[in-house]
Design a protein around this nucleic acid. Structure first.
Lengths: 235, 235
DNA sequence: ACATTTACTGAACAACTGTTTAGTTTGTTA
DNA sequence: TAACAAACTAAACAGTTGTTCAGTAAATGT
């Protein structure tokens, strides 16, 4: 909603065209001429404004990172839900960036790595706080849990196309995100397994033989076969 | 471990080179000449054997899909844990394909879509079974839960680089996967939240206003701010 | 032994790539 | 109005792309 002063300049139009095309097809498949056509200018002007294609890419990265972290600035202390609902309210603004954001984590960039690590740090803090005030369960591996939660959250981004398709929606919109968020909170509240047999077996197997996971077979198989699948599943 | 008869043929060597390069750099950034050099042949031979670069890509897709679904064939009925431990045992075989597999879901391909949808169908069945025999909790949205679990699992693939880095490992190896799998089962067993206030608030907000999620602010904010963040978080 | 297919190479092709450059338009300042 | 800088275009550049093609080497069947 909030429009910045330079949103109407030609340079900004070129940057937005690049974000759209890179998000749709990836950086390697995005040519300077394609960006120029999308922005309604000549190919030379793209280089005139940004120097090179790589610099255009980093300009896009910087812009996206700045926009995303700006909306997340309020999260520093307590007011998380407000930041999230603001996020939801501004969904129309964010939507064209979702594909680009996904590629940020997927096409190995320094910007994506920094953002991911920042999320992990933030989550570590939230978990600490939650455990301290009793609203969250403690964990046997704090760091791994934080990494897992961030990866889980970002999977809505990197797998958005598949999720949307399985929700019978042409694209992952605010409704689909709400549906997935609700079911995630349900999962994080009630859990999936009704007893701890799977967890106990896996823990024993892992402490038993860290280097030879084949041992897991003897421990995991009996108690609850289908459960084990949903835990590790396809990867 | 099981080596197929044509693994040593030149055509197979070209295919493997393509899988490695596409996995590392993406399809758009992988040239016929690069594949040829990696395989130790001429560029012309690549096209001679596969017809075109697109056909080489689909040949790689088909090969990977066949290999992955082959190892998962035993999952049809009950013997899930055996399939998983076989998966772990053959990790050295799978490892060079992890990057390619990730791109399969990330770079919008029909093969990746089919695989994802297959996982969702499989998970739906496992969840049904688990709920029926009492080993898993029922859900308010069966389909969304299945989709979420598949997305969560595949996030270990699409975000493998970031996960490995945050686990202080150069790449996501069998040890890191085991660590993430353990913490996932822990999360799915004990849950994250120690009470249902976050879940209740989110449910009420969503049934209240499906089309206008801005309403969520009033409902979600008070009970447990940090909790809400971990549920939806960055996306 | 010969004939025929197959595997394979190296050079050539048109099309496309990022970038440069010369020149034109446009806006600003004096 | 004159002068200057910035925005912008069109053409040209060297290099890379996927693919074709003519020709050679090797394998295969007879």
């Amino acid at each position: 909603m909030r429009s910045r002063p330079d949103d109407s300049t030609t340079k900004a139009r070129i940057r937005d065209a690049a974000i759209a095309l890179i998000g749709r097809n990836g950086f390697a498949a995005t040519s300077a001429r394609a960006v120029a056509t999308e922005a309604g200018v000549s190919a030379g002007l793209v280089i005139h404004h940004f120097g090179s294609m790589r610099e255009l890419k980093t300009a896009c990265d910087d812009f996206i990172i700045a926009e995303v972290t700006h909306r997340k600035a309020g999260m520093g202390k307590g007011d998380v839900s407000a930041a999230i609902s603001e996020w939801y309210g501004d969904f129309d603004t964010f939507e064209p960036w979702l594909a680009y954001l996904s590629r940020l984590f997927t096409d190995a960039s320094e910007a994506g790595a920094d953002l991911f690590d920042g999320f992990v740090q933030l989550t570590l803090g939230l978990l600490d706080e939650g455990v301290a005030n009793g609203s969250m369960h403690p964990s046997t591996d704090d760091r791994a849990r934080a990494v897992l939660l961030v990866a889980h959250s970002l999977s809505l981004l990197t797998l958005q196309a598949h999720i949307a398709r399985n929700l019978n929606s042409p694209r992952l919109d605010v409704e689909g995100l709400g549906r997935m968020g609700t079911i995630a909170v349900e999962l994080y509240t009630r859990g999936l397994y009704s007893d701890s047999s799977t967890f106990d077996a896996m823990r024993e197997a892992n402490t038993h033989a860290t280097r030879d996971p084949a041992d897991m077979r003897q421990h995991v198989q009996d108690p609850d076969p289908p459960s084990a699948a949903a835990g590790i599943h396809p990867s």
